[in-house]
Design a binder for these strands. Sequence first.
DNA 1: GGAATATAATTGACACGTCAATCATTTCCG
DNA 2: CGGAAATGATTGACGTGTCAATTATATTCC
Lengths: 161, 161
Amino acid sequence: MTQRRGRFPTREELRIWRDFIETTDALRAAMAARLQSESGLSTGDYSVLLALSEAEHGRLRSSELAATIGWERSRLSHHLGRMDKRGLIRRENCTGDNRGAEAVLTEEGAAAFHGATVPHLRAIRELFVDGLTPAQVTAAGELAAALREHLGNGGGPQEIP
Amino acid sequence: MTQRRGRFPTREELRIWRDFIETTDALRAAMAARLQSESGLSTGDYSVLLALSEAEHGRLRSSELAATIGWERSRLSHHLGRMDKRGLIRRENCTGDNRGAEAVLTEEGAAAFHGATVPHLRAIRELFVDGLTPAQVTAAGELAAALREHLGNGGGPQEIP
DNA sequence: GGAATATAATTGACACGTCAATCATTTCCG
DNA sequence: CGGAAATGATTGACGTGTCAATTATATTCC
């Protein structure tokens, strides 16, 4: 293999980059559209409702919820505000720590989530799994693992031994 | 192979889906952050400036620009408004069709773009290419092609022969 | 105890994207 | 010609995401 590191991407690598990033974008948009039209939820709503559904008593402290779904606090705060306004969750004070707040799943939120799961699982199969061969699904998992690992390390310049 | 279609995704498929979607999201975010901090541009800015730079005389009609970069008109209109305010582009009336508008690259916009290309190419290599083996880069291209093809077909339910 | 500091969460300002509505001009056709 | 329909682009409303600043409470340590 010829020297690869420290160079600019080749034409082919550039083409793949663009294809890859645009396609994954389209995939996300398609999933968001499915969820929205079939269940009236955004993907953010779904993440929040999923985390709350799996939590004890359908309630979680804001900071734990944020950690669970990997969001920044302020993003969660804004989103909970909107979900509260729509009646999907309710905010309560945190017993024992008056700084804290808890997000509580409402009846309505639980119903919306339960109504969304089946269509959402179907959408994952139809949009993602069915578009790939089993080998490609595996490859997608390995790709994600490699990229995540690399990003975790800063994704910066590589050492030249 | 056991029957795969018409079922819900398996645990493993679900895990891969989440991993894949989250990681590609993180990748996009990382690229946006690099572009922003190194060149003061958003990825949207970069797309627009790239298209204008490659166009004759650094100018394009709005609708053609939108088609080139695959954006909706209204998105482009909003974005051009912001870029205009920052002096990266200028809007002019379209000679010959008074409905139309042209986006024109300014000196400042051209300078910003030229200053951004090298860091951006480097970021593509560092964040994407360097994180993958050559075989994985190829696999990423094939994955994108397969997903794009599938999405293009509606990504809907599969026929059962 | 009480000031300094740390932590939890919210808020405001702004960039961004989508949708539906609007406005201006051009094209089509009777 | 002249009005209906099509086309090009903008706008406003609203959901969403990030960053920096703010508020309120808890903890620490002298």
